[in-house]
Design a protein around this nucleic acid. Structure first.
Lengths: 258, 258
DNA sequence: AACTTCGGTTCCACAATATGGAACTTCATC
DNA sequence: GATGAAGTTCCATATTGTGGAACCGAAGTT
């Protein structure tokens, strides 16, 4: 690791902490000692300090496990930090596309945005976090539908624009396409001039738990850019899924080219 | 805080880290600066170091949130660190009673112990972690039954000792008592001479997800000590539930007297 | 466009701080 | 009771972290 200066103690302590947190199992003092190459006294001092702050905790037999502070965080957050985990992905997508990027989950039968990276253009960036959009005419919603994570409510499908798909059969065909391609698109179906692309994020058990989307004005999201963006999204979504513990059906490079 | 020596940097960094992790929301640099009282330069250096190690992460507007390492930990751990969270409670109970303390969850229709603090007496401390006990004749099992977290299998109830309750109606009356008192007792129903007391631990949605128990020989766990222990357990279990995010029906002091 | 404020990072001389070898304490084993 | 392994405490030393001040870039203000 680089030695960026002025933080030796913290670098070492952080390294120990990370090691314990990343390792699935309790780490005995000796193991940490050997792996870090620190002198006994130093390691002891650092570990005790971390323990004092509740970041680490010792087992009955002296091995170190993540401490109460982290455990509390873990139990409190369940899926709340899906947003945290996803943040770097959102930003990478935002950086590459320049468009507004969103992360959404299902909540009470509708799509709820829970994180956003704003467009770098002037046109395009309103805040959608907390906003709910319908399933049948948004890219995000269609992705959830396509993977069986959501079901359409009964009754007629609301027409939002001239291009909103209101025919269930036609929608069904489109969902099949989404499963095949790995990403979904909504072209001015929710709001005139607005195009969105989305891909599914899977959780530990492989179920679709969230979706990533990119949205922007039709003037910028031309057909080829939509394709390009869709593939980017599918890749990033797969990488994120993997980090979240989803079984990998096809390997992906998290920071792969375009 | 006490005055340990030789860890100023780490104490400060840990404090910042804990603050960010405990706060539900992203903490802007300025807020951390003010609350910690550190000079700007120092805070900046410490925070950058933590960020470098993936313990913290900045969002778009520069506020600090728990980093990828912690997020990964949280998503990976699900309920695995129920044991970690509970550890301090187990130890407190062990310290006060001197008896063997266990934490158990339901697994495949039986009670499975997942953590233990050993008795400080010679008599009483065998290792039960991983051991499964039946529902109808253990304190832990009866607690799960009482709160509807488990259901009795069909067929006759196995008789383990002369005092095992094998009559479903009688057992039903006892379960009602457990709900009323807040703790359950098994007096030599599982093994002659063994008495156990247990109380329920609730998770985020208020459902009973685990139970705490104290067990020891009948010579030490006399009737008043059983009552005393039951109340202690009920209190600690309530405190633990609260930490786990259970809705609180009655307020509890986690470190309250006795 | 020039100026100011605000939020944060970088610099660097200084000394307070973390360091680590060795002595010491515990606990288990022979 | 002696020996060894695992970990903690001590303390002289200089390496390390410190923090005031300078600096930088972005977002208002005139």
């Amino acid at each position: 690791m680089k030695t960026p200066s002025g933080t030796q103690a913290i670098d070492r302590a952080a390294q120990l902490l990370v090691r314990v947190v990343e390792a699935g199992e309790p780490q005995p003092f000796t193991a940490l000692l050997a792996e870090s190459g620190l002198p006994k006294s130093t390691a002891s001092r650092l570990l005790s300090a971390l323990e004092r702050h509740g970041l680490l905790q010792r087992d009955r037999d002296g091995a170190f496990r993540p401490g109460p502070v982290l455990a509390r965080y873990a139990s409190r957050s369940g899926s709340a930090d899906l947003a945290v985990t996803a943040q770097p992905y959102l930003e990478r997508i935002g950086g590459k596309t320049g468009e507004t990027v969103n992360l959404a989950v299902l909540s009470g039968g509708a799509v709820e945005q829970i994180a956003q990276v704003d467009s770098s253009y002037l046109l395009g960036a309103t805040n959608w976090v907390g906003l709910r959009v319908p399933l049948h005419c948004s890219a995000l919603g269609k992705v959830f539908l396509a993977h069986g994570a959501a079901e359409l409510p009964g009754g007629p499908l609301e027409r939002r624009t001239a291009r909103t798909v209101t025919d269930r059969e036609q929608l069904g065909r489109e969902l099949a396409g989404i499963r095949r391609r790995g990403y979904g698109v909504a072209r001015e179906e929710l709001e005139p001039g607005l195009i969105a692309v989305a891909a599914a994020v899977r959780g530990r058990d492989g179920a679709v738990i969230a979706a990533l989307s990119v949205s922007g004005p039709s003037v910028r999201l031309t057909p080829d850019r939509v394709t390009e963006t869709g593939e980017l999204l599918a890749g990033e979504a797969a990488a994120l899924s993997e980090v979240l513990g989803a079984p990998l059906d096809r390997a992906r490079d998290p920071a792969g080219p375009l």
